[in-house]
Simulated assay, not measured.
Amino acid sequence: MEHRPGAASRVPSAGQIQVERLGHKWGRAKLPKLGWVRFRFSRPLGGQIRSATVSFKAGRWFVSFLVDDQAATPDGHAMANTAVGVDRGVRTAVVTSDGEFFDRPFITAGERVRCRRLQQRLARQKKGSTNRRKTIMAMAQIMSRVSNRRGDFCAKTAAHLVSKNALVALEDLRTRNMTASASGTVDAPGVNVVQKQGLNQAILDKGWHRLELALTNAARYTGTRVVKVYPAYTSQRCHACGFVTEGNRESQAVFVCKNPGCGNTDHADVNAAKNIKAAGQAVSACGDLGTGRSVKQEPGSRATGQAT
């Protein structure tokens, strides 16, 4: 197999795979063309092996097994009629309608400095050189640790949310479209390119899509239903009275309803999460409300549900 980042080989037949434990932490697997390979158990297999994938990432080899754990999705959640709305942000990764905040730094200050120096070194090195490959590998090792922390955060946050709630509502965010390049073309150059690059990096750093995948995966074990709702105006609408205006959100964190008869105040992200929860409950109760009606007329009117 090639020693290049992302190189992978899959063994789709369980009959070609043998796995033996050598101790508490170590084991070995017999794979076609590779023979017996020794590996470290990061977790118990916990089921019947269906396939195996050998991959190369950040200078290290990994073997992962697809297993059938015989677990069935429950017919209902243990805590029926519980629900939560989840607002994903660039300042705080996850804020819920219950007022919980989930966030953590995925890269340390030292790693950030190290990565910047490696990028500067890479710019000076000749393409195809041995030193350039070493620099790329060093950068990959740093980013691999960052990615592992992000995956751990998303998995733990998802497990916490689905264990407590029968319904989890998310905004239906098109992350790939939102992080598209703003550089434009030679004939039509982009505007605010630097600002857009910073926003794109912040969105990707918080792992919005990875959290969605983690929720969908974890929900299979608890019977939680994950629904996605139309995101427009969730940050501008007052949860208490439904009044919508851009002026309601005074800053990134402060929400003050400008309706003279209301005056509700809340953390802006918590208010948005409450709106997402209300829209998600509407979808759960009534099904898809369609995409042709204005969200201003009815909260969540363009929401779509996704059962898990």
Rank of each mutant, 00 (worst) to 15 (best):
E246C: 09
L167P: 13
Q306V: 15
A72T: 12
D288T: 07
L22E: 03
T304E: 06
I142R: 11
F101S: 00
G261S: 09
R210G: 13
L199A: 05
G300W: 14
K25Q: 06
A214F: 02
C241R: 06
A180D: 05
E100V: 12
L118K: 07
A83K: 07
A123V: 09
R60E: 11
G280E: 02
T308I: 12
N177F: 00
Y233E: 03
K206I: 09
K126G: 03
A273Y: 08
R293A: 14
T291I: 03
C241M: 10
L31T: 03
K277V: 01
A155P: 02
D288Q: 01
Q16K: 10
R133W: 08
T82Y: 01
T234R: 11
N248Y: 13
A282H: 02
R225N: 04
S181W: 08
R249H: 05
G261C: 11
K196P: 11
R174I: 00
F41N: 01
R60W: 00
S97G: 06
E20K: 13
Q306L: 14
H239F: 15
V86E: 03
Y230Q: 15
C241Y: 12
N131Y: 09
R133P: 01
K296T: 13
G305T: 03
A282D: 04
V86S: 00
T245H: 11
T108R: 01
C115S: 11
V191M: 04
H239G: 11
R116Q: 15
R133E: 14
G247C: 08
H267Q: 10
D68E: 13
L215K: 13
S294V: 04
V227W: 11
T224W: 00
P231S: 15
Q125T: 05
H77N: 11
W36R: 06
T96F: 00
Q120F: 08
L122Y: 01
A29L: 05
P32G: 10
F39S: 06
K134L: 08
V168L: 03
K134V: 11
I276C: 02
T224L: 08
S251Y: 05
F243L: 12
R220L: 13
C115K: 09
N259P: 03
M79V: 10
D266T: 02
G292N: 01
V146C: 09
D69W: 00
H160T: 12
E298I: 04
A159H: 08
D288E: 08
T73Y: 06
K164A: 15
N217W: 03
E298Q: 10
N217V: 07
I276W: 01
K30N: 13
G23N: 13
K126D: 06
A272L: 04
D269K: 00
N259K: 14
A140C: 12
L45H: 03
R249F: 15
D87G: 14
C238I: 14
D205E: 15
A138C: 07
E246A: 15
S55K: 00
H3M: 13
A14D: 05
S181A: 11
V67G: 09
I49V: 15
A219W: 00
C238A: 11
P5R: 09
D152G: 06
M1A: 14
C238D: 08
H209L: 02
L199W: 12
G85A: 04
K25N: 03
L173N: 07
T265I: 07
A214W: 02
P189H: 12
G280M: 04
K164Q: 15
I17R: 05
G292T: 05
R174F: 01
S284D: 15
V256G: 08
